[in-house]
Design a binder for these strands. Structure first.
Lengths: 245, 245
DNA sequence: ATAGGCAAAAATCTCGAGAAAAAGTATTGA
DNA sequence: TCAATACTTTTTCTCGAGATTTTTGCCTAT
């Protein structure tokens, strides 16, 4: 019974569709190409600043030129690709300052969202937080084998955890922006994890956030979350300079 | 043999282009169509929820089908248009709750940006604020004739004023998001102005913001700015219910 | 009379080729 | 040797036609 999409007529807001539908399967070739491209950009297959030539990529992704063009346009929405006038597309460049900006903006949005979540969340929200935290903890245990799949699993569950935390925040716009920023920071976090495969004690940080959230201690929870997010910035800051360029 | 991606030397940051290039002239047909469409959506020519059929619109805007498709895709970035799987495009719906969400998120972002602007702004920033305020005041005087051009001029300068206010905020991301939200609220503000052509004493509010900003009184400035933005929400709230649907 | 299903129509999505623009290369002259 | 110009190549942008999918209308059966 997971074929959801049951639309209730009353109360459009709660079940209003997200600004970017990202959960379902891709229903069009353009969207499929978009997802592959997004993955490849985040994974670093296409490096920051690289030119994305339609003629070359259309063969690689097995779609027509116009279709690939649309996929690139979708990536512009996520700010993973920049389009310049009559000069084609490029992978969005990265820089330390940009990451600092992303991180601080994330803190601003995510703390506000968490505050509202704590204020408004019901039992179901608490349950989803505990569940997501459990899944993340399990993924952390398996992370020690260093395999690629386990890290991907951890990435997925880490994201799910952060999403669920602010899941009771009623603002679709904050969640939308937060979503974009999370994708962005994923590119940087990849660099950090590559260098520092076993991160700092992130488990304890998550635990502390969960405890404060369930205790409805918004001030404490947002404080820890802020430090948690900002710590990633510090980790990237300590990378060799030539990693980012 | 992939080569390279010639990276430029440093200093990319200061002159980094905005996330959405909006100032220049449109350099491509798709972008031209995008701007016309955006204007028409904000102006209400295409009403919220309307279906946007490519076959009809391509004649109206005098471009090919693929080109119009790209224009629509660009509008998805601004969240003025929603694309559903294999079922084409629609003008993004509006609702009171959505506007409340937009407004509150705007307050969150814009106050944070203003705070940083006040903290970091230099003499040139102060000058630009005073200049923008002056232009806006002049536009307000001419607003009494009720002509369409004068209201458009006011819209333009009001936007410029709010942009300049947070112009010294170094965060490109906050400015980017704020930009999107401003476009969104423009749709709603149009409804409000239509009903209430001579708005409340918005001049005094702007004046108070400028005074507090130049006095480097961040707490006061952000407080007034918050109330200022929220007041628009109240104005729309008092519209007849059937205005929004 | 209503519900279900089949068929026609409309709309979307996709592709490849042609026109416009940018980038790269070679040539010429000081 | 260097700079400026003209030419060639590459790439982007645009268009119209064909293939799929969705929607609409009609018909039949219970």
């Amino acid at each position: 019974m997971n074929k959801n999409s049951g639309n209730h007529t009353m109360n459009d807001l709660a079940n209003a569709p997200d600004l970017v539908t990202d959960g379902d399967e891709p229903k069009t070739l353009a969207e499929a190409a978009y997802r592959q491209l997004r993955r490849d950009i985040i994974e670093g297959v296409h490096r920051p600043g690289d030119k994305l030539r339609v003629e070359h990529l259309k063969d690689q992704y097995e779609v027509g030129a116009g279709t690939l063009r649309e996929a690139l346009q979708l990536l512009v929405t996520d700010a993973l690709v920049v389009a310049q006038g009559q000069r084609g597309f490029r992978v969005a460049p990265i820089s330390l300052d940009d990451f600092a900006d992303i991180t601080r903006t994330r803190v601003l949005l995510e703390t506000s969202a968490l505050q509202q979540s704590i204020e408004l969340g019901d039992d179901a929200w608490e349950a989803s937080v505990v569940a997501a935290f459990h899944l993340l903890s399990r993924a952390e245990e398996k992370l020690s084998d260093g395999s690629k799949t386990s890290r991907e699993e951890w990435e997925l569950r880490n994201r799910a955890f952060h999403e669920v935390l602010i899941g009771a925040c009623p603002s679709r716009w904050i969640r939308h922006f937060q979503n974009i920023l999370y994708h962005q920071s994923e590119r940087y976090r990849r660099l950090s994890l590559f260098r520092q495969p076993i991160p700092r004690d992130v488990h304890a940080e998550h635990q502390a956030i969960v405890d404060a959230a369930l205790a409805r201690n918004a001030a404490e929870a947002t404080r820890i979350l802020s430090e948690h997010i900002l710590r990633t910035l510090e980790a990237v800051r300590q990378l060799p300079a030539d990693f980012i360029s």
